[in-house]
Structure formats: C-alpha cells, structure tokens
C-alpha cells in the first residue's frame, strides 16, 4: 500500500503571534498560534510547521515558549524553524516538545550544523528549509535546463553560486531527513506549486520533499504530489484565510487519487 501523503499547515510567528492573517470565525484569538494549531489538528492536519520570524534578542525564549505551549495543547508532530543555529538551540525546542527543527540560513552559513544535529538527534529530527528562485537563463544558451538560486532573509538575499538542487542533495547527504522546499516565485501567488523545481529536487534526494509556496486551491496539492513527486505539501494562506479547511483539501486530494489520512 502506498505511504500516506501529508498536509502541513505552516504558521509564521512573530513575538508569539501569527503574522499572516487569519479570518477564521470562532477563534477566541486569531493571532494565537497555539489556538490556530489546535484548530488545524482538529481538522485533520498531519503535522505543523512554525516559522519564528521574531527579530529581537528574546528570540530564543519565544521559540522555546512556543514549542512548550504547542506541546501542551496539540497532539500531532510539529517542526520549529527560524532561529535554530546550534545543537543547544535545537535541544531546547525538542525538549519543550517539538518533534523536528528546520534550519535554513544557519545551515547555509555553516553546513556542518546539519551533520551535528543529525548525529545528536537523528536525521528524522532535521529538516533543511530551502527558499529557491528560478535563475534567469543565460541569453547564450536559451535551451539550457532551468536552475534555481538559493535565497535567504525572506527572499531578499541571494547566496552566490548556490544551486538549489545541489544544495538539497548536499544537505540530505549531510544528514537532513527532509527537505522543505519553497518556491519564492510562487509564494503568495495562489498559482500552484512550482512543479519543475519540486520535481527536480525530489528526483535528486533520497529523503522526503515538502513542497511549499503557491497553493491556492486543493487541486494544487494533489498536482504537486502526483506530477512532481512531493511527499508532503505545506500550506499557509489557503488555510489561514479560511478559503478551504484542511479536511476539504484532503478530501480533494483523495478524490484525485492521493492516499491521505482522513
């Protein structure tokens, strides 16, 4: 039987509050990430990802507090990312109840971090998050296969000479147990995931790939699984703004032929 594909709502959190808007009815406090997480659990989310974008000195405490409050109330696996730069950082959020940590710019700055985390906690705890943007084709070779650059700082800064597919492969070889792959070109567009990028990375690594960026309707979730080989789909606005529930999205995936937990 086939392995169940996962649907993973993602919550961006700043100083303990959800950043991207939510217009759910019935939430006491739409900005509370834990209350939103409980809602997603009840709707059938398979996992959750919290990306902490707090830019203050209290960042470490805010992510540990978030992990602790989530573990108190939400009983599905969850990943914490944004500010994990060391084994000690990871230890504190895993001790608080998180299941995985995701690393992005800290791993680009010091790739050894991936191996250190995998050695201490196991690869199943380590997610490499990659923000990729399609490189402009060389005018001299218009038929060259597409390439994607790696960006950090919310897509504002390009890493020189870093190819997204190659970096995903290297990170997996260093011990990352999963790739969280975001298309900067598609993020926020509602046009669907970038299939070509997702397919290229999924073909290059032996670990699961979580597609991210661009989901606008349930059909996009099934599409990236069936056509690009994604193992899981990450969604933010499609759920936050109440357009579709997690359950509706998963029902649509099942109808399209994707095995999901319902």
């Amino acid at each position: 039987m086939s392995v169940l594909k996962r649907v993973i709502p993602c919550l961006d959190v700043d100083r303990g509050r959800v950043v991207k808007g939510t217009n759910f009815v019935g939430l006491r406090d739409a900005g509370d990430p834990v209350e939103l997480a409980e809602r997603y659990d009840a709707e059938g989310a398979d996992e959750l990802v919290f990306l902490d974008i707090t830019a203050t000195h209290e960042k470490r405490e805010t992510i540990v507090d978030l992990a602790r409050r989530t573990a108190d109330n939400v009983f599905i696996p969850f990943t914490i990312g944004g500010g994990i730069g060391s084994v000690a950082d990871a230890q504190s959020v895993l001790d608080a109840g998180a299941d995985k940590v995701s690393v992005n710019s800290s791993a680009l700055a010091r790739p050894e971090l991936i191996g250190e985390l995998a050695t201490v906690f196991g690869s199943q705890c380590v997610v490499i998050a990659i923000d990729a943007k399609r490189a402009v084709a060389e005018p001299a070779v218009p038929t060259a296969p597409p390439r994607w650059d790696v960006y950090v700082a919310g897509g504002r800064r390009r890493i020189d000479g870093c190819d997204a597919v190659g970096w995903a492969r290297e990170a997996a070889e260093r011990g990352a147990g999963e790739v969280l792959l975001t298309s900067i070109d598609r993020d926020g567009t509602n046009l669907g995931y970038e299939l070509e990028l997702t397919g290229a990375v999924a073909a290059a690594v032996a670990v699961p790939v979580i597609a991210s960026g661009g989901a606008g309707e349930p059909a996009h979730l099934a599409e990236v699984v069936l056509e690009a080989g994604a193992d899981a789909v990450l969604c933010a606005s499609i759920f936050h703004y109440g357009a579709f529930s997690v359950r509706q999205a998963k029902q649509a995936m099942r109808e399209a032929g994707v095995a999901v937990r319902l």
Binding site: V3, L4, R6, D46, G122, Q124, A206, V207, P208, R261
Partner: peptide
C-alpha cells in the same frame, strides 16, 4: 525501495 526510518502516518 522505501526510506528508512519510517516516518509518518500508517493505518
């Protein structure tokens, strides 16, 4: 042919 560890939901 599958990735180990097995991580995920199974009925």
């Amino acid at each position: 042919g599958l990735k180990v560890p097995h991580i995920g939901w199974a009925p």
